[in-house]
Design a protein around this nucleic acid. Structure first.
Length: 560
RNA sequence: GCGCCUGUAGCUCAGGGGACAGAGCAACGGACUUCUAAUCCGUGGGUCGUAGGUUCGAAUCCUACCAGGCGCGCCA
């Protein structure tokens, strides 16, 4: 006996299939395979609560006019008592279904039973997913673009967990290669500069002010001063030192942004564990490596890449790509059903070769790369220059301090990943209506206030009960109930498509309907049964708002 | 030159084969003796970049072109 109540949409889909089987059994319809069809909420209210294009997609295989097919489907329909109020054929052959208002009330039972878990689903069926995100090199503080990746990755991980996946959040640290040397060299020259020497700061050095701070702290901690004759050997420990300090800062920024990781994977560990050589051996064995011009190449063209790629230079040093091959080889050894990498869109050219490597290695499971477009930073509508060189880039730290974690996260999550984003610091900072995060949070806080008020009057929020339902018949109430019933599908679709922004839009709409309802109708009044019914309904609304905000990593405040 | 992303209302963006294209902001006009006005109600506003094509049906798919962004290393 299943306790779970089926959403009307799924229920209707099954009823339609039954109808088709029956019609076919009776010889009224003749077709081979059932084509894909939609059951969805029409945009127009006159078109009912749910509609299907089933008759239209069946026109060709059944060799019959859509409206005729629609008639046959309707004739064979057997819906449960009290579900369907009216069924119509419309337009070119849509079948429109009008659901009885009373049918929608049942969602309240489900929300009450599942509580904070309402909205979760079992799409993932416990399979393992890894989300790797941010992964900024430890050569400087996180900037606003990393913030967007962080918000997206974290929300996505939350979303996948809610959808029944076992999620691991991972940050990949590039601590190998000449960038660490360059970092050491940058620190070295800042140290000498601090000693009052006139120095020529290296062209390729990291010029940001944070390196000056780092140099000061380095000396303040009593570390040995720089020599006068620099050597590569001297840069290495300095680079390692700087990298560690910067990484510490990154961790702190992420923590304050509400983002945590389950694992931090260091590139050096991949080498230490011999994974680079192991992945090479695997590729060699499958015949996808060859030598040319003294270098070792991966035959990525065999998998659709534009050209083959070097994995070991003629100098004997492996490339960044080699590390990434090893890293993904390692990832897929851990039985991930899905590995999601979130990268800045400026790395898009890198996708084909990595996909090629994953395929060549014969990994079980799927790699999906999400490219997040860069953020254009504005202040009062004017572009803010973002150059590392000029030292005018805005860090994630500054954004957190200036606009706050919640507003920043929400704004990042109101755009599709592949849409460019204009982030206006002044707009994000103000609590103006231009800033939607407060609109949604306010709905939650407003309800909390209502419940406090009810509590003060000894008015309990009742459990859902059929006796309450006749008291929720206003259009605003039915409309809210429909949205609540729709919510789990939104979560599932957002998870399936790896698109957290769908949640942001849903929540804004739900908040809008709640505010409107609140304004038009008093929840707490002299009429006690009516008050109880409304409290019961809006408590369900609050549960859903809280769930959605939690997935976005945005606070659901009790007061504002 | 080649490749990827984007082009939808004045602005920022949803919608990504279905019925007359949506929201927020901005503009304009209204609503606070009220459970929080960080709110609500109303009005105006669009050849969905352009041109072809596929389809019963295209903002959505295909082709070409135009515009913006980003990539095309034995860099990371």
């Amino acid at each position: 006996m299943k306790k779970r109540i089926m959403h009307p949409k799924k229920q209707l889909r099954e009823i339609l299939i039954q109808s088709l089987e029956q019609a076919r059994g009776r010889g009224e319809l003749d077709f081979q395979d059932l084509p894909g069809f939609e059951v969805e909420e029409p945009k127009q209210a006159e078109h009912g609560d749910l509609a299907t294009n089933l008759a239209m997609v069946l026109a060709k295989p059944a060799k019959m006019a859509p409206r005729k097919i629609a008639e046959i489907i309707i004739k064979n329909l057997t819906a449960p008592e009290g579900m369907l109020q009216k069924v119509e054929i419309a337009g070119p052959g849509f079948i429109n279904f009008f659901i009885e208002d009373s049918h929608w009330h049942r969602v309240l039972f489900e929300i009450h039973d599942q509580g904070p878990a309402y909205g979760n689903c079992d799409l993932g069926a416990g399979r393992k997913v890894q989300v790797e995100f941010v992964s900024a090199n430890p050569t400087g503080p996180l900037h606003i673009g990393h913030g967007r990746g962080a918000a997206l990755g974290d929300a996505l991980a939350n979303l996948l967990a809610a959808a029944g996946y076992k999620v691991v959040r991972e940050y990949y640290i590039n601590d190998v290669g000449n960038q660490i040397n360059t970092l050491g060299k940058s620190l070295y020259f800042r140290l000498r500069e601090l000693r009052g020497e006139k120095i020529e700061f290296p062209e390729d050095g990291y010029q940001g002010d944070y390196m000056k701070d780092l140099a000061r702290n380095y000396l303040a901690a009593g570390n040995p001063p720089p020599s006068s004759a620099p050597t590569e050997e001297e840069f290495v420990p300095l680079g390692r030192y700087a990298g560690d300090v910067i990484l510490g800062g990154i961790k702190k920024d992420l923590e304050d942004f509400g983002v945590s990781f389950d694992r931090w994977c260091r590139e050096t560990d991949l080498y230490r564990q011999g994974l680079v050589e192991k992945s090479f051996a695997r590729l060699q064995e499958k015949g996808f490596l060859y030598e040319k011009d003294g270098a070792l190449w991966f035959k990525s063209t065999a998998f659709g890449d534009d050209k083959d790629r070097v994995v070991r230079r003629s100098t004997g040093v492996t490339t960044y790509f080699a590390s990434d091959i090893a890293y993904h080889f390692f990832k897929f050894q851990q039985d991930y059903h899905l590995v999601v990498d979130i990268w800045g869109a400026d790395h898009h050219g890198y996708v084909p070769r990595l996909q090629a490597a994953v395929e060549a290695l014969g990994c079980q499971g799927q790699l999906q790369v999400i490219l997040v477009q860069l953020v254009s930073l504005l202040r009062h509508g004017e572009p803010v220059a973002m150059t590392t060189r000029g030292g005018t880039f805005v860090t994630l730290r500054e954004v957190i301090d200036e606009v706050g974690k919640d507003a920043a996260r929400f704004i990042f999550l109101t755009r599709r990943a592949d849409a460019h984003l204009d982030f206006d610091l002044e707009v994000a900072k103000t609590q103006s209506p231009e800033n939607p995060v407060y609109y949604v949070q306010y709905a939650h806080a407003r309800l909390a206030s209502v419940f406090r008020q009810a509590g003060a009057q000894d008015l309990q929020v009742p459990k859902p009960a059929p006796a309450l339902f006749p008291l929720m018949k206003l259009p605003e109430e039915i409309s809210l109930l429909k949205m609540l019933a729709h919510y789990p599908e939104v979560v599932e679709a957002a998870a399936r498509n790896l698109e957290p922004h769908r949640l942001t839009y849903f929540l804004t709409e739900l908040a809008s309907q709640l505010h409107s309802y609140y304004y038009k109708h008093r929840f707490i009044s002299e009429d006690l049964p009516l008050s109880r019914a409304r409290l019961c309904l809006v408590q369900a609304v609050q549960t859903v708002l809280a769930h959605g905000l939690r997935l976005l990593g945005v606070a659901a405040p009790e007061t504002m």
